[in-house]
Amino acid sequence: METLSLNRPRYKKYIKFLPLLVVPFLPLLLKNYTYGIMLLCFAQIYVIATTGLDIVYGYTGQITFATSAFFGIGAYGSVLLRKYTAIPMELTILMATLLSALIAMLFAYPVSKLRFAFLSLSTISFNYIFFYFITRSPGGITGDFNGIFVERLKLFGISFKESHHFFYFGLVCVIILVSLKMLLVRSRVGRAFLAIKQNVHAAEGMGINVRKYKVYAFGFYGAYVAFAGTLYAHFVGFISPETFAEEQSVLYLIMAMFGGLGSDWGPVIGSVSIVWLNDILGYFEKYQLLAYGILLILFIVFLPGGVVGEGKKLVAKINELIKGAKNRKEVDAGA
């Protein structure tokens, strides 16, 4: 058996990624369907945010209901910096992302000792505080409930205003950030995250500084989500508080869980599917929320591990069956 897998050519390992080569050509295929390209752009933004959430929730096991607040810190951060100072947009996006990472780390420092319900409540409170802050901001700088219009994305003289232009910029961002996460979770830091998720006390016993790594995980989370937020603001051209309300935070959790927690492709699959699903459900009007709720429950009953988790289980089962059949053959031959 072992020799078999050794002899197998290496390229076979990558064959399953071949269909991904279609992705860059999607805008050409969907040329007459601009709406579809726009949905893809939104999916890219959510992929980035959900990837960040997966670091803190999927890998480190820290549940958080504050994702839309960090999304909002990115969006409002970049927009307000751009509006009230003359800093170029490339820098405001970077500054908002770093600011959010800093806030997330400062928040994580006291929060790191909280668990489960207490952790959930602290993140819910954080999101409410952020929401009340942007709706009742000092001097009305955030436009309060009315929201603000935002300059469209234009970097280094290139405008990404149109969906099919933004798509390529988003794709590059997704590839870089998802690869970065893959490297991160396979590194020493990523192994510490997993150890914390599996057993905090055991991790502490092995000499892992739990608080430090939780702070790191929140830092990455804050940066990823806020970066997605800045892209959202500059892509849509308008932001208002409802997008950053506490209820919206659940959406990211649904995306992460639908794809499969703690996996490379889970956030990608989850975000793209949920964006599409939400769009289709939009046609049900009054029954949209009902259908969404029922689908969610069905999904939880039948796919509790998410698409990636259940897919892995299925592959393992099939392999087991093949192995069993092979063993039986060998036994038959021997007899």
Binding site: I254, L290, I294, L296, I300
Partner: peptide, 14 residues
């Protein structure tokens, strides 16, 4: 448990 909490969110939507 987190999956079941999500189910209660779905119940709230319904």
């Amino acid at each position: 448990t987190s999956v079941i909490i999500l189910a209660t969110v779905a119940v709230s939507y319904i």
